[in-house]
Amino acid sequence: MHTLWIIAGMLGIFAGWMLGVETPWLVAAAVALFALAFNSIVSAANHADTAYSTVGVQLQKRHDLIPNLVAAAERYMEHESSVLERVIALRAQAVSGRRSPSDQARLENQITDALRQLVATAEGYPELKADQSFQALQRALNEVEEQLAAARRTYNDAARHLNDTTRMFPTNLLARAFGYGTREYFEVRDAATARPDVAAQFREIRRG
């Protein structure tokens, strides 16, 4: 949105020059415009950083919930160790090391799938389903998933804004000069954004 004001400002300076406005005024206006353009890039980059750290906080919350969920489930799901092990292994992979947003998103998608499989499998264990701790953990997980989706959407919007700023004229010239680049989006597959169809997954597990 700043680009619109910056272009309007450039046109204003050009019009001032054509109308014979004195040079010091034109220079002052040009400096102000430069500051506006530069600050808009810095602000967009800061917003993207802040938004990405919020995604990180929500991911951390989800990672913290997984051991509790697995602990609650394994008391009843003795014969489903492969499902639980997969969740634990993916979680261990996710909390180790730093990754780019797209790599992190890919790994988180796998965790989402594994958690859905865990919840769908739990449908076959009435005692587990009735367990209050497990129910509370499922609610907490739903909460975190919603918060995570909101943080991800905020980050993607901030990244889109930064990418627009660093690619559009005239801010792209400043961005290139001062080393500001584009950001990757934190993409989630369409299926992952929808509420899980637990019944369908349960039927699939029963069949297979």
Partner: peptide, 14 residues
Amino acid sequence: RIWSKGAPPLARTA
């Protein structure tokens, strides 16, 4: 109501 609002507090299981 699948979220935490109004639900009993989360019990510690681990």
